[in-house]
Structure formats: structure tokens, C-alpha cells
Write a protein that binds this DNA or RNA. Sequence first.
DNA 1: CACTTGATGTTCT
DNA 2: GAACATCAAGTGA
Length: 201
Amino acid sequence: MKLPLSYYSAQDVLFLAQDLLGKVLFTEINGEITAGIIVETEAYNGIYDKASHAYGGKRTDRTETLYSHGGISYVYLCYGIHHLFNVVTSVEDEPHAVLVRAIEPLIGTEIMENRRNMPASKAAISSGPGSAAKALGIDRSFNKKDLTGNEIWIEDHGIQYPSEDIVTGPRIGVAYAQEDALLPWRFFVKGNKYVSKPNII
DNA sequence: CACTTGATGTTCT
DNA sequence: GAACATCAAGTGA
């Protein structure tokens, strides 16, 4: 059930970003397990992508994680407040990553309600990358974790959305990336209420 | 409903 | 000093 390391080695980050929709993201913290179905992702295409932290081959202490082999997590702090969770894909020195932007709560919803201080009936509990990470209890201690380990991992529960329900569009919040901001590298499930921003075509 | 605003770490200028 | 892969609470219609 847990996705094997080989799954993350695929070098086509666009395929993986789409394929991760419907997969189930788990975390276990102090014995508390929470999980949610991934319903929204964005692809970041390594050194050729102006919206990527690794654009142009940039390496800093923070981005070093992106250059590892696929199958680990990349968590960083955005706007000084929010933790954003990414799946590092491809092989070593190919800094491709998939940002998880929204999940649908599946397991441990009461724990998520406590973390978010709002009822799970509100879509905002896990809509948007900062909220989804917080609902799962992800913070920077989850950076560079092995996704086949027992703290954070992804399972395949056989959930598959019909292709007509998978919608692509330009990525959110990357206007600074100029022409790359227009690339249709955001993938989400049509009509799912946990999807952030415009969720209709 | 649309818009405004405050919170504030990391990185680059 | 400024910009940034954001959120939630507030305002005013």
C-alpha cells in the first residue's frame, strides 16, 4: 500500500503531480495518525522553472533538500508563518518537486480539528498548502524525511478520479515567474470542496 | 461577496 | 530593506 521508493524516481514531474491526486498522505506524530486524500498539487520543474526555488541550479541550505533523490519531503517556511509540504521527485541533482496544495481529511479528523481550531466541515481546514500542512501537523522538522519511513508517508488506496474530473490550470501565487507563471502545472480534482482558489474550469 | 491587513523566516540586493 | 509557492480575521456593501 505504501508507495515504494521507485514511484518517486520518475523523472516526469508533471505526470507525478497528476498521479498523486487521489493518493493518501499520512503523518504519525506522538502516536497520533492523521491522513488526507491529495486533491490539489503543483509541479515545480527543477532548474528550468522560474517559479522553482532551484531555478538556474540555485543551491542554498534551504534548497539543498531538492537536490536529493526522489522520495523525500521538502518542507519550508513561507511568508515566515506557513509550512509548505513538497514531495521531492526524480533522481539526485534533478531538483524536481510536487507541492501538495490541498487534502481531503480522511483519518484522524478530530486531531486535525484541534490543530486547526475549526470544524472539519469547513473546507478551509485543509484547503491551501499552509492549511493542509498544518492539519497534518507538518512543520520544518519534517524536512528531508524519507517518505517510505514511519513518520510521513503516502499510500495508494486505489482512489482514481475520472480523467474528465482532473483539471489543470496555471499555478497559484507565482506571478513573479513571468512566462513560467502561465504554465498549466497545477492539477486539482474538479468540484472537490477542499481545493483552494478557483475550483471550477 | 470582494477587498484589506497583519503575522514574519529565508534569501537576495 | 524588500520580496516571497499564505492564511484568517476584519471591513464594507
